[in-house]
Amino acid sequence: MIPSESLQGNEVAWALSVTLATGRAFLTRMSAYLIQFVRWPLGPLLIFAVWRVMYGASGRTVVGGASLSGFLVTGIFGSVLLSSSIWTSGYAIEWERDEGTSGSLFLSPASRAAVIAGYGLGSFVWFLPCFIMVTLLGVATGATLNIGSMAAAALGALAMVTASLSMGFTLAGLFILSRRGNLIANVMQPPLLLLGGFAVPIARLPLSVRWISNGLPITHALEAFRPAVLTGAGLATTGRELALSFGVSAAYVVAGLLALRRVEHVARRLGQLDLY
């Protein structure tokens, strides 16, 4: 995983190399078991189907101003990216610790942030077939694309990916420092799936919980991405949510880097990371 010596003078190239190497390692590890090829794409497809049947039973055909299937396809994208930030980039150091490689990781000169980004990047690649299959299922059940501004759609997609990675940075430090990473991940996932606005529009959530939704970068990213790809909204409409998404993402990255510094301290100075 350590890049060649020729890269060691160039911090950016080195970090990129570590990110790519970690992403490749993630994909290799995930490909080791056949069941992984089935379960990861199938899970979101089935959840899409559950939500689609629920909405069908409710009699709603339009949700949040978009067609039902279009709303749910984008919601599944968001939920997959949220899962990615919790279970891959967020769980990056936990994985290393579980596999007994966290000691080597902290002894290596590789950037921890690049390793986390590598997990996130690997998961985006891993989920590509899932995104394609969900899109095809969405189109087959009535979803239609309506892109009025390529810039708004592209920036919306970029905001989604950035939001996922930024949350991963914060969660990575939180999970490892709490020593209850698996528990926190399991406890936080169900509420975030609801509060992120993936299956139910944010406007339908009670006012008392919307502040949590507003504190999630993925919520704002989805609020920008959905209208950009489903109702032809341009940057004038989605600009505010895009700005909020990138702003909140930046705050998460800063929090994540501070948490990683603390993790570094615990690992190197106190030597406690692999004691539990």
Partner: peptide, 28 residues
Amino acid sequence: GALGYLGLWIGLPVFQLATAGLIYEGRN
């Protein structure tokens, strides 16, 4: 931990039900 245990076992079904309730409320 007791709190985490409760959060895990109470939280999951409650939020799943909340999602279903919000989908059905007002229409069916």
